[in-house]
Design a binder for these strands. Structure first.
Lengths: 250, 250
DNA sequence: CGTAGTGTTGAGTCAAGTCAATGGTTGTGG
DNA sequence: CCACAACCATTGACTTGACTCAACACTACG
């Protein structure tokens, strides 16, 4: 358990992508007390109504945020990638307003909220990085409202595939924006507000047009530029560019 | 311009609803340097791509956040009520990922980001209150993804009407959850991801069932409990309850 | 009292949903 | 290594909720 990479290494890398951290900041994050635990696919990490006292960070595997209607229909409202926090929002909100579930088997690192909060108070850079991450997530929610509210089935699905390509590329988990997608068509349907049957037909159509190529759970994009166009994808909402203050020549 | 209420009074009230502020906190907020300006209906307060240096707070009137698809379809992703900030997110994100537009004529107070940031650094309570507000907004976005993604036209519309009823009630702008709704059916359509024609038909149906009553731009709800049910409305996502730490007795 | 923005209604169409069956993959235990 | 079981993907036939197009009515305001 100690020879492998530190469980929070990916988190640090992810935070640094938008806001620079000093060596000291990095090491104080890595020195946070963590409890790492393996979670099975489909297990819940947070349940709606919970009052968490720890902050979970996804170390390995994929997870998602979901909400249900009263008649049991599921909407996936966010996809969580390795290195991302499951619930920064609980640093400020007491009770969970949605559930977080593992999409695949994976590992989650838990840090006591108090320790993280103390660290944020002592380091403006860490404070800033964590809050930026939370604000970017809010921006992604806005884009998803647009996606689900105003785009065709084709564009919706393509848009989610593009978003994952770009986000996974950022953390080194994609190759030419293609990636291993451990998501069933039913889950994809619940992320874009469609039925699984219609997602299947739409994926088949995208494949027939040579915009998407699937083998097993691997997905790739023979014509990434064209896919972006039909997805109406513009990554501004991911706020990936470096900070303005210093070196602007990104 | 000086005998009337202070432009940030509603903001203070709103922040206090979730997180207590000391007298000193209140007065330091009210002492922030503000520039108040009147904005016409449909004018833009923030445009996608802007790099704001001031933080806008809605003093009077209604506004909304919107995003457009490349073929010009609009999605309203949030409705902003008096006392709410237009762009707390720009304290952490440099460039605007969406536009904020006035729904009605109104007044907006601008505070330099630097001053607000300094205040947040000097007062943990203000810091907490502002960030709670931002996190609650993120929670509302999640609910909207669910609303637009998984509910019927009827439920979607009813849900937005319920949300506005509860939020307006909270700031004293509703009476039995009925309120003045200065929103065209086209805007409502863009908030719920439907066409104006279909919104009209659905509203007429709700009215025929005596769940909604409209006169001019005033809307009221003869059977609020039933409306909540058909809307699948549960206000947990608004995080309205007082803080857990002290007096829990509602 | 005209004009422009809204709201309302009707008729016809279509994108996406439903229901139901079949086919393929993966994993597991014997 | 095989056979089963469970889950997932695919396809067809049919239905429907929401959209489109187009007209007309109301209201506010100068």
């Amino acid at each position: 358990m100690s020879a492998t990479a530190h469980p929070l290494e990916l988190l640090v890398r992810d935070l640094e992508l938008r806001s620079p951290l000093s060596a000291r900041d990095r090491s104080s994050i890595l020195n946070l007390p963590v409890t790492t635990q393996t979670s099975e696919a489909r297990s819940y990490v947070v349940r709606e109504g919970d009052v968490p006292t720890q902050c979970g960070i996804l170390v390995r595997g994929f997870a998602f945020r979901q909400k249900l209607t009263s008649d049991g229909e599921r909407q996936i409202v966010a996809i969580i990638l390795p290195g991302e926090a499951l619930d920064f929002q609980h640093l400020f909100l007491r009770v969970a307003d949605h559930s977080v579930q593992m999409m695949t088997r994976g590992e989650v690192a838990f840090v006591p909220q108090n320790d993280l909060q103390a660290l944020m108070q002592s380091s403006p850079a860490i404070n800033r990085a964590v809050l930026m991450k939370a604000m970017v997530e809010a921006s992604i929610f806005r884009e998803w409202v647009l996606n689900v509210g105003r785009r065709s089935a084709r564009a919706r699905i393509a848009h989610v595939l593009c978003e994952l390509g770009v986000r996974l590329d950022r953390v080194g988990l994609a190759r030419d924006y293609g990636y291993h997608l451990p998501m069933t068509q039913e889950e994809l349907a619940d992320a874009v507000g469609l039925t699984p049957v219609h997602v299947n037909r739409t994926l088949m159509a995208l494949e027939a047009e040579n915009l998407v190529s699937r083998t097993r759970r691997q997905i790739s994009f023979p014509d990434w530029q064209q896919l972006r166009i039909i997805a109406d994808f513009n990554e501004h909402y991911l706020h990936l560019k470096g900070q303005p203050t210093s070196s602007a020549g990104g």
